[in-house]
Design a protein around this nucleic acid. Structure first.
Lengths: 182, 182
DNA sequence: CCTTGTAAGCTTACAGGGTACACAAATAAG
DNA sequence: CTTATTTGTGTACCCTGTAAGCTTACAAGG
């Protein structure tokens, strides 16, 4: 039986294997052994399917990540975890860039991280700004990386991006540390 | 007479007026009073046209911006200038996100900004990391903003994003300031 | 003047896309 | 068994990018 979950899962597989342009309703149907129109029983349209893919991937990024540390480490850990998922699905990064994660889901997944800020008396509003800033930095960085490297096995390029990522992330976290100090 | 420049200009107008999905070769031709295939005399294909649009917009972002200040202010000024262009062309932001600016052009346009770092003895490599980090932050932030607001006249939302932008940018600049201090 | 080469634009045609709509098959309810 | 509901299918429509070949316009050489 076809379900929304199976469709989304297959979409991510197709994305990883063939890229975003090849993620067409007909091809996706073929991958599931089903006609293209059958997908529309479980997903209202292609855009909605892509939105589901985005939510699934963001959930995946947060899965198993428990920020049991001070907010600085928790925030950096979140960034690393998010980045790992993005680089694991390079063809999906443009999708994450153009389809915002569902607001309620995002809040739910980030609640635990936000408590790390509250624990030291940082206002929720300020915490959200910090988390969101790091989020857009990670996404922007991943966009730059996947947009620049047609060669995924290039070690020196990967090292360059890793270095850059760490430096920028650490600058941002340090910056917020100073800004949020009482 | 049709020229590459006119095609690119019309593409940006169409983008602003009708959105990325409506930017099709036929419609763009119609806007120029010309058949779709005529565009191919001046642009090899649609992807190349989009790349030209990206370069044009980035150039626009840098036009007239002269960073005559310490690198901290120059960097922040660049970010503000870049953001202004992105928000002036909200429908183009996903394009900038997925089509990297031509490397040579980017370097050329950012040379002056980089000299602001060299002036105080910061290694070019470190300067590039800082500039690039800010660049991806600005782009990521703009993506979040244009992706979230179907209402472009919402004042409180705009204020929220402005506040967020300034805070995150300032955190990042401050962070690099500490990191790059001798 | 005519001829001819070249550039610019046009027409047509094809392969492929999303999806509306009407139908068939299968399963569940009574 | 009958009927209602769900799930998948086939067809069809309109739109997309763009390859190939044609027409038009104009400039240079004779």
């Amino acid at each position: 039986m076809l379900t929304t979950e199976r469709v989304v899962t297959a979409a991510i597989e197709a994305l990883d294997a063939e890229g975003l342009d090849a993620l067409t309703m007909r091809r996706l149907g073929a991958r599931l052994g089903v006609a293209a129109m059958s997908l529309y029983r479980h997903v209202p349209n292609r855009e909605a399917l892509l939105a589901e893919v985005v939510n699934r991937l963001f959930t995946e990024a947060m899965a198993g990540y428990v920020p049991d540390a001070a907010w600085q480490q928790a925030l950096a850990g979140f960034a690393v975890s998010y980045r790992r998922v993005l680089l694991a699905h390079p063809q999906a990064v443009p999708l994450l860039a153009t389809h915002p994660v569902d607001v309620d889901l995002g809040i739910e997944l980030l609640t635990e991280l936000l408590t790390r800020f509250e624990a030291v008396g940082i206002a929720r509003c300020d915490a959200i700004t910090a988390v969101q800033s790091v989020t857009v930095y990670v996404l922007g960085h991943a966009l730059a990386q996947v947009g620049s490297t047609p060669a995924p096995g290039d070690e020196t390029a990967a090292a360059f991006f890793d270095q850059w990522f760490d430096t920028g992330l650490s600058a941002m976290v340090t910056g917020f540390e100073h800004k949020l100090a009482d």
